[in-house]
C-alpha cells in the first residue's frame, strides 16, 4: 500500500447559499496522476483551494503527507507546487526573474536555486525568452511560464488547475508530456480539467465531479465499465424498415436502437462481435449501407450516463 499524499474527508464548503462542495472526499496515493474532472462550476478550483488551505471550509478535514494541513504548515507547503487556473506572474519581472522569484520562496540555497531555475526553464522550453516580460509572451508561452513558476522547486505534490485552458494543441501536448515526466520523476500529481481527453490520456485515477459532489471515481477503465454502454455502433443507411430495426434490437447485448432516417445508432453493452452481428442482419436483408463506425465509450458517456447531461458543450 502506497503512502497517502492527500486525504480530504467530507469537505463542505458554502459560498453563502451555494454549496460548492458537498461532502467531498478524496484520497490520493503517492505516484498517482489524479484527475479531477468536472464541468465549469463543478467545484474543482474550490477543492484545490480548500486542499491548499487558502479557503476556509465549513466542515471536514484535510491531511497532506499524513499531517493536517493549515495555512502555517510551511513544511508541507514546501513540498507542494501549484499551477493556478489563472496565470500568476509579475508583469514587471522577466521570465527568468519570475521563475527565480517563485523558486526562491521555497529554496533558500542560492546555488541550488539557480540550478533548479535553469532546469525549470529547460523543462518548459523557454530558453529563448528569458529576458522577455510576460506581456510579450504568447498565451501558450505564458502558460508554460506559469507552469515553470509552479514546479521549479521540484515539489513532491504538484497541483495543476486547468493548465491547458486556451492553449493550442501542440503546446497542450507538450504540457501533458511534461506532467507525465514530472510524475515519472516521482511527483504525485493532481490534475483538474474539463477536457476529458486530457484526463483520459494522462491520469491514472479519475474522480468525476458535478455540483460539488464526487459522482464517480476510479481508473478510466473502471469508470467506463460502470456504465452499460460499452460500444456504440453507427451505420449510415437509408430507408430502414422498422421490422429490421426491431430485429436488430433483439440481438444479444443490444440495449438501444435509434434510427433518424439516415443513421442507425445501436448501443451495445459488452460482448464481442456486436458490429459483425448487426451487419449480418443488414446483409441478410440485402440492404446496402454507407459508412460504419464503432466507438468505445468516453468519459463523457460516463458523465452523461450518471448526470443525464454532457460534460461540456459540443462547441467547447
Amino acid at each position: 500500500m502506497k503512502n497517502t499524499v492527500v486525504k480530504a474527508e467530507n469537505i463542505i464548503k458554502r459560498y453563502g447559499d451555494l454549496v460548492a462542495l458537498d461532502h467531498f472526499s478524496l484520497e490520493i496515493s503517492e505516484g498517482e496522476i489524479f484527475g479531477l474532472l468536472g464541468p465549469n462550476g463543478s467545484g474543482k478550483t474550490t477543492t484545490i483551494n480548500c486542499i491548499l488551505s487558502l479557503l476556509s471550509f465549513d466542515k471536514g478535514s484535510i491531511e497532506i503527507f499524513g499531517k493536517p494541513m493549515t495555512p502555517t504548515s510551511y513544511d508541507i507547503k514546501k513540498n507542494i507546487g501549484v499551477i493556478m487556473q489563472n496565470v500568476a506572474v509579475f508583469d514587471e519581472l522577466t521570465v527568468y526573474e519570475n521563475i527565480d522569484y517563485f523558486c526562491g520562496l521555497y529554496i533558500t540555497d542560492k546555488a541550488q536555486r539557480k540550478q533548479y531555475v535553469d532546469e525549470a526553464v529547460e523543462f518548459v522550453g523557454l530558453e529563448d525568452f528569458l529576458r522577455f516580460r510576460p506581456k510579450k509572451l504568447s498565451g501558450g508561452l505564458l502558460r508554460r511560464l506559469n507552469i515553470a513558476c509552479g514546479i521549479a522547486h521540484k515539489p513532491k505534490l504538484i497541483i495543476l488547475d486547468e493548465p491547458t485552458v486556451a492553449v493550442d494543441p501542440q503546446s497542450r501536448n507538450r504540457i501533458l508530456e511534461g506532467i507525465e515526466e514530472l510524475n515519472r520523476n516521482g511527483a504525485t500529481v493532481i490534475y483538474t480539467s474539463h477536457y476529458m481527453e486530457e484526463v483520459e490520456q494522462i491520469c491514472t485515477r479519475i474522480a468525476i465531479m458535478d455540483k460539488g459532489k464526487k459522482i464517480a471515481e476510479g481508473t478510466k477503465d473502471e469508470l467506463k465499465r460502470m456504465i452499460r454502454n460499452t460500444e456504440t455502433v453507427t451505420i449510415e443507411i437509408l430507408g430502414l424498415e422498422d421490422r429490421i430495426k426491431d430485429r436488430i434490437s433483439t440481438l444479444p447485448h443490444v440495449y438501444s436502437t435509434e434510427y433518424d432516417g439516415t443513421k442507425l445508432t445501436v448501443g451495445c453493452s459488452g460482448g464481442k462481435h456486436n458490429l459483425v452481428r448487426i451487419l449480418g442482419v443488414l446483409q441478410e436483408n440485402d440492404l446496402s449501407f454507407g459508412r460504419v463506425y464503432s466507438e468505445l465509450p468516453t468519459l463523457n458517456d460516463v458523465f452523461l450516463e450518471i448526470t443525464g447531461k454532457a460534460l461540456r458543450d459540443k462547441e467547447d
Binding site: N49, L52, S53, L54, P71, T72, Y74, D75, K77, K78, I80, V82, M84, Q85, N86, V87, A88, V89, F90, F102, L105, Y106, C149, G150
Partner: peptide
C-alpha cells in the same frame, strides 16, 4: 492577498510566512 490576485494566492501557498 489570496483573494485579491492570483499572485497573492501563489504567495499564500508558498512556505514563506
Amino acid at each position: 492577498q489570496a483573494n485579491m490576485s492570483s499572485l497573492g494566492a501563489r504567495r499564500n501557498i508558498s512556505p514563506t510566512p
